[in-house]
Amino acid sequence: MPSDRKPIMQVENLEAWYGESKALHGMTFDVHEGELVTLIGRNGAGKTSTLRSIMGIVGTRTGSIRFRDQELIRKRTYQIARAGIAYCPEERAIFAGLTVAENMTLPPILSPGGLTDAQLLEAFPNLKARRKSGGSKLSGGEQQMLAIARILRTGSRFILLDEPSEGLAPVIVKEIGAQIQKLKEQGYTIVLVEQNLQFARLVADRHVVVENGEVVDTLSNEDLSSNLDRVKTYLGV
């Protein structure tokens, strides 16, 4: 793990609000290039809010998000995306009014090195046959594939992935796990929100435990196995 080098992203004392209600109470963590970091914790701990705050999709946020020597805290969502961060939301956000092909090619190419349309269809063969279907006609697994596929097009190599395994059949989860593994091998940096500990352990380098909008623990993937009981207490399972 390249922990001796300077992190690609440093989140410091990040606080966020949705209207009146405070969702994050000072998150501090960092992510290194090529690393896969998970945010784990109970429902409502602030994992999704953390990703949304990084992306600027919250009401108000304070603190600091440094990404490649650039401060993002005051940037607009589209500027954050153009800085090289891609976001795959929990609800997958497939556009019902657009076809699968339109959904797939919607994100613009922001920097070189993204996957071409042909490469995407090769990587996600299920989507090929359904190119002309409406976005709402896809199964949950297909929607998840599409949500991941389309952001790989932009050329961004820093990806925020929110619960890709949620609500999917084990065989699909396995397939998505294999895709994430492949992205890691290709050098992508990934922040993964995950409830499914088994899934998280298969792909992660490091785990950041979130509770009440704060980081309460950080463990390497090896440490996770030896501290499983402690982690399960955090997760309430």
């Binding site: 992306m55 999709i57 607009r76 969502t77 589209y78 954050i80 995306a81 153009r82 891609a86 976001y87 939301p89 956000a93 556009f95 019902a96 009014g97 657009l98 339109e102 090619t105 919607l106 994100p107 613009p108 922001l110 952001i151 932009t154």
Partner: peptide
Amino acid sequence: KLGAYLRAANEKPEIVESFGINVP
């Protein structure tokens, strides 16, 4: 393509913006 952006922004503006598009 332009129309696709408009239709998409009509459904989920914050997601379209997260793709790097200046939705405002």
